[in-house]
Amino acid sequence: MNPMLAAARAGLVRGGIEVRHTLTNAQDLWNYLFPNLIFLVVMFFMRNATVPGTTFSLGARTLPSLLGGGVAFGAMVTMMMTLALEREDGTLLRAKAVPHGMLGYLIGKVVQVAGMTVVSSVVLVVPGMLLVDGLAPGGPVAGLTLLGVVLLGLVACLPLGAIFGSLFENPRNLGVITLPIMGLVAISGIFYPINGFPTWLQWIGQAFPIYWLGLGMRSALLPDELAAAEIGGSWRHLETFGMLGAWAVLGLLIAPVVLRRMARRESGSAVAARREKAMQRTT
């Protein structure tokens, strides 16, 4: 058997096992469910408000946006956090000591984060559908759009998360990245349409993948008339796939370089030094 193929397969299995660990661990499960619970409450209170300029429920508009935002945020932040944490606890070093272990580790991580993002989305959508009316899912085109946006969105965001996670030695410093990402979510039209924002802010929002994931999800799950409420009065599918594709290419070009650099620096004494620092902070 080809060693790389064996490692890739081990990686897939690894991802599956880690998803199972997350799903059978109360603390982890709560970490995934809690934000969704808040979102559902927010949507519930939004159900009678309307999208500006229409009579359409704001809650129904928010659900697909949240799905998109969730994929982006989950892929970036979870990837970043686990990479930083597992570098600190020695998981990465362990992977490095095994033939093609890094390949298996990364494939496993992608499967785990993507898998949990999907689980998290389902947890949001199913009760969400019951809470708000007006979603118009169905139809093969909508389904394909949904699938395409989720997949491309993951490919765009996972490498970004991996890059951020590799750059930070100390998981407790990740707030430096997490806070701006939260800020980006706020100006990406997830909770509220960005049409009302100043133009410069709209441009910033549209420069990042979060906005396009939200837009793509809306285009798949909302009735076509709602396109009128978007920037340019259209779902802008071409731009959506173009922007997500561009981020994906950028991420996939940079991530291997950054990851390789990080992996090369990993050693037992590096892990020990990090642990020592962490201990000093807690005592």
Binding site: A10, V13, I17, T91
Partner: peptide, 22 residues
Amino acid sequence: WRDHAKWRVRELLAHLGSYYLP
């Protein structure tokens, strides 16, 4: 090390062993 805290002993050994199959 403190890694793989959630894994079970046998599960982890089987997994890491699979890289050596080739």
